[in-house]
Computed example of a mutant assay.
Amino acid sequence: MAAAGGGDVCDSGGDSGVARAGRRLPPHSPSGLVLRTVEMHTGGEPLRVIPRLEAAEEAGAGGMSLLSLRREVAATQDHVRRALMHEPRGHAGMYGAVVVRGGAAAAGVDLAALFLHGAGYSAMCGHAVLALGRFALDYGLVAAPSSPETAVRLRCPCGPVTAFVPWDGRRSGNPVRFHSVPAFAAATDLAIDVPEHGKVVVDIGYGGTFYAFLNAEQLGLDVCSSKTSDLVKAASAVTEAVKKQFKLHHPESEDLAFLYGTILTDGKDAFSEEPTTNICVFADEQVDRSPTGSGVTARIALQHHKGLIQLNQTRTFRSSTTGSLFTGKAETKFGDYNAVIVEVSGEAFYMGTTTFTLEEEDPLKYGFFFK
């Protein structure tokens, strides 16, 4: 069974013999996967876009919701995730998105997306939404784009979001911004016992997925100067401790009630014109190279809940790993519970296209995980 994008995704262009040879696939198993991708990054965080996955399309045609489709793909197509996220085709920091069109999962939107990482599947990914906004326009997934900006409707497993993408009539541009699902504070000033660190105080926020937040100083670290390996180890210890000591609840679906990771900050939560720096460690000790779009969403929700930021006050968030910047602001309150819709803005860029093949006799055809 093939998992493939449209022909334009891997068209090398030109009429030279070299170009024609470049279109030929290397020897591979006739029954094996051919995986075509578009390579992007947002703030340094990679996004491997899979424009089409036949198995997801077939399952989606049966009327599955996107959350149900996420479970189905995880159960039956996880070899695709492993092949593309893990080495030798990927790496410990790789991230991906499967584009879903048609069926109930994508009803009423321009596209839906499933998010992939080294350890599994996420419910939300802000850096991916920023990149997919551009992808949707440039690959013709929006029926009638408008200049100077087009609203791109996406559905994520956590719910619908809208990206706003510059469009000049020929190609998309930057910066891209999106409006989040309702974001809220799940817990504040929560005392947690962390092995080797003792008692720390964390906040837990939801921005499409749940994160624990704390000042890295509580762990004897600095997000700007400590070794990344030390930050990763400490953040992972916090994540595991919170999972054991605090039960999460989501008001709409228990499928969303899981802690995705921990974000260590510089502690600068009160509103300021100066950037605040953080590092996000999620899944199985994976490090986000960007400031983390869903993390910015959750952190803005927490800051608003605590009265540290007002509606429409824009804050700048810096990644401690790359120095890349996102901005975020609480746009409006939402519903009967204390939630806000957050606007996040950043820049996403194309890097190329790739066609991956598999040879059936390759013992590592579905990759290996190394960190």
Rank of each mutant, 00 (worst) to 15 (best):
Thr277Ile: 00
Leu221Ser: 02
Gln245Leu: 11
Gln245Asn: 11
Ala241Gln: 13
Glu274Tyr: 06
Phe210Met: 07
Phe282Asn: 01
Val281His: 02
Lys306Val: 01
Cys280Phe: 12
Arg289Lys: 14
Glu254Phe: 09
Ser225Arg: 13
Ala283Arg: 02
Ser225Val: 03
Leu264Ile: 06
Lys306Arg: 12
Phe210Val: 04
Ala301Tyr: 04
Gln310Val: 00
Tyr206Glu: 08
Lys244Ser: 15
Ile300Pro: 04
Gln245Pro: 07
Tyr260Cys: 10
Gly293Thr: 03
Gln286Thr: 13
His250Gln: 05
Ala257Leu: 07
His305Phe: 15
Arg289His: 11
Cys224Gly: 08
Leu302Gln: 06
Asn215Glu: 15
Gln310Met: 07
Lys243Pro: 00
Ala216Phe: 07
Val238His: 06
His250Ser: 08
Phe271Ala: 07
Gly295Arg: 00
Glu252His: 10
Phe246Ser: 01
Glu273Lys: 15
Ser229Thr: 14
Gly207Gln: 03
Ser236Met: 11
Asp266Ala: 08
Leu264Val: 06
Leu214Arg: 11
Gln303Val: 02
Glu252Tyr: 10
Glu217Arg: 15
Lys243Gln: 15
Gly220Asp: 09
Ala257Pro: 07
Ser229Gln: 13
Thr277Glu: 14
Pro291Lys: 00
Leu302Asn: 05
Glu285Cys: 08
Arg289Ile: 00
Thr265Lys: 07
Thr277Asn: 08
Tyr206His: 02
Ser225Pro: 00
Asn215Val: 08
Ala301Glu: 14
Lys247Ile: 06
Leu219His: 07
Leu256Met: 12
